[in-house]
Simulated assay, not measured.
Amino acid sequence: MDMRLEVVVLPVSDVDRAKTFYEGLGWRLDADVAADDGFRVVQLTPPGSACSVIFGARVSSAAPGSAGGLHLVVEDIEAARAEVAAHGVDVGPVFHDAGGVFHHAGEEARVPGPDPRRTSYSSFASFSDPDGNGWVLQEITTRLPGR
């Protein structure tokens, strides 16, 4: 049986601010539904993604800004970083990990610049939404077998 990840719930403190931020990145607004009891759910989808994000009022009990390690896969890390920055977002510099595999948590073992060999899965840049939910751009040009 296939199991597809299609929605990630983001904990935010200000629904309208988060909606403005993600729409400002060019993400498609799929839904913005409010109920009379104060419940509200907003769903947006990044360009080219089959997975959406949902946030809202009374959607998550997690602390606002506590989501991290959310990866957006891109074909060109430098162009993707520039595009996100062009939308007014503070994006960190492109980096690769000293170990050459996957990046460590936080900023540990970050080496400035893209992976010198431009190995797929090995170059990154990071940014956060207004609440501090952490995103990572990851360059993938050639998929691992079976992906």
Score class of each variant (00 low, 15 high):
40 R>I: 15
141 T>L: 00
10 L>N: 12
140 I>C: 11
115 D>L: 00
96 H>K: 04
19 K>P: 00
55 F>N: 09
18 A>F: 00
68 G>D: 15
142 T>R: 11
133 N>H: 07
134 G>E: 11
33 V>N: 12
96 H>M: 03
37 D>Y: 01
94 V>R: 08
139 E>L: 01
29 L>A: 03
102 F>I: 11
20 T>I: 12
111 V>L: 14
106 G>S: 12
75 E>Q: 13
48 G>L: 05
52 S>E: 03
60 S>W: 05
64 P>I: 10
99 G>R: 12
33 V>R: 14
79 A>K: 12
62 A>L: 14
65 G>W: 11
94 V>H: 09
48 G>T: 07
12 V>Y: 10
144 L>S: 09
42 V>D: 04
105 A>E: 14
21 F>R: 01
51 C>E: 07
61 S>W: 12
48 G>N: 10
100 G>I: 06
132 G>C: 01
44 L>F: 13
53 V>K: 05
63 A>H: 12
98 A>D: 05
113 G>A: 03
22 Y>R: 01
38 G>F: 05
121 Y>G: 02
121 Y>A: 00
1 M>A: 12
97 D>R: 03
37 D>E: 04
140 I>K: 09
142 T>A: 10
101 V>L: 12
79 A>N: 08
25 L>R: 09
116 P>V: 14
110 R>C: 09
43 Q>L: 14
126 S>A: 14
12 V>R: 06
42 V>F: 04
96 H>Q: 06
127 F>S: 10
22 Y>K: 00
100 G>Y: 04
33 V>G: 04
130 P>L: 00
133 N>K: 07
21 F>I: 05
141 T>R: 11
48 G>Y: 05
41 V>P: 02
2 D>M: 02
140 I>T: 13
40 R>F: 15
112 P>H: 06
42 V>M: 06
18 A>S: 15
119 T>I: 08
51 C>P: 00
139 E>C: 02
3 M>Y: 13
5 L>I: 15
25 L>T: 10
47 P>R: 03
116 P>N: 12
100 G>N: 10
109 A>T: 09
52 S>D: 02
46 P>G: 11
26 G>E: 02
47 P>V: 05
13 S>F: 04
52 S>K: 06
78 E>C: 03
140 I>D: 02
73 V>D: 11
24 G>C: 13
15 V>H: 00
91 V>Q: 11
35 A>L: 14
8 V>F: 09
76 D>I: 04
121 Y>F: 09
85 A>G: 08
73 V>A: 06
54 I>H: 07
18 A>C: 04
